[in-house]
Amino acid sequence: MKILVGVKRVVDYNVRIQVKADGSGVATDGVKMSMNPFDEIAVEEALRIKEAGKAEEVVAVTIGPKVCQEQLRTALAMGADRAIHVETDDQTQPLTGARILKAVADKEEPKIVLLGKQAIDDDNNQTAQMLAGLSHWPQATFASEVVIDGDTAQVTREIDSGLETLSVDLPAVISVDLRLNEPRYVKLPNIMKAKRKPIEVLTLAELNVEVAPSVTVLKTSTPAKREAGIKVESVDELVTILKEKGLI
C-alpha cells in the first residue's frame, strides 16, 4: 500500500505577519518559511502507518515554486521515501490544488492521501474535501485517530459536537487535525540521507491539469485591532465594573 501525503510551504507559525502597506498581500520577503504544521502531522501519520507494517511507501507531494523543495526535503528527512514537486510560480487556489493532487493520485494510485486540514496561511480548509469530491472517494476530515484495517479505515474526527467516527473504504482522503500525533524531530544524519532521496519534478502541463475557476484577491488589509484595556487591582474592582456594564 502506498500513501501520498501533501506538504505546503507557509510562513512559519511563530511569525507575526505584516500586511504590505499597498494592500497587495502579506510580506514574505526574508520571513521564515516552514512546512504547514498540519502537514507535518500528516507526514508523521503516514510514517507511523508505514512503520506499523500497513504501508510500503510514503510519497510526499508539494505544489509551488522551486524553493518549496526545502519542505519536501524536510518530509524526506522525517522518513518519506520519495517526493514529487509540481512546479508552478502561480499562487495555487484549493480547487486547482485538488485537481493537481488528483492527477498525481491517478498516476501514483495511493490507497490513502493524507493532507493537513488547513494551511495556516490562507486558512481555507478545502483541498482535502475537494480532492475527495473530484475523485469520488470517501473523505474523513479533521482526524484525531486513524486505524487502518485491511481495505477500510476507521477515522475519529474532531467535530463541534465531539468525536465522530467514520468507517471509510480505501482509497480515501484523510485530513488531519492537531491531536492526531506529535511529529518527530528530524535528526541530522537523516537530513544528510534525505539529500540523496529522489524528487520528481512535474508541471501542470505534464499532468494535463488546467487551472480551475478562481477567486480574485482584490486587496489585503489589516483587521481592526482590539485595543488593550486596563488592569484592575482586585476582584472587587472587577466585579463592580462587570456589574455596572450589566455583564454579570
Binding site: 507575526r16 486558512d123 484577491v217 482584490l218 489589516t222
Partner: peptide, 15 residues
C-alpha cells in the same frame, strides 16, 4: 474573509 489566523483580511471577488 480572514487569513493568517485573522491577522489579515482579504477581499475576494468570486468568478
Amino acid at each position: 474573509r480572514p487569513v493568517y489566523a485573522g491577522n489579515a483580511v482579504i477581499t475576494v471577488e468570486a468568478p
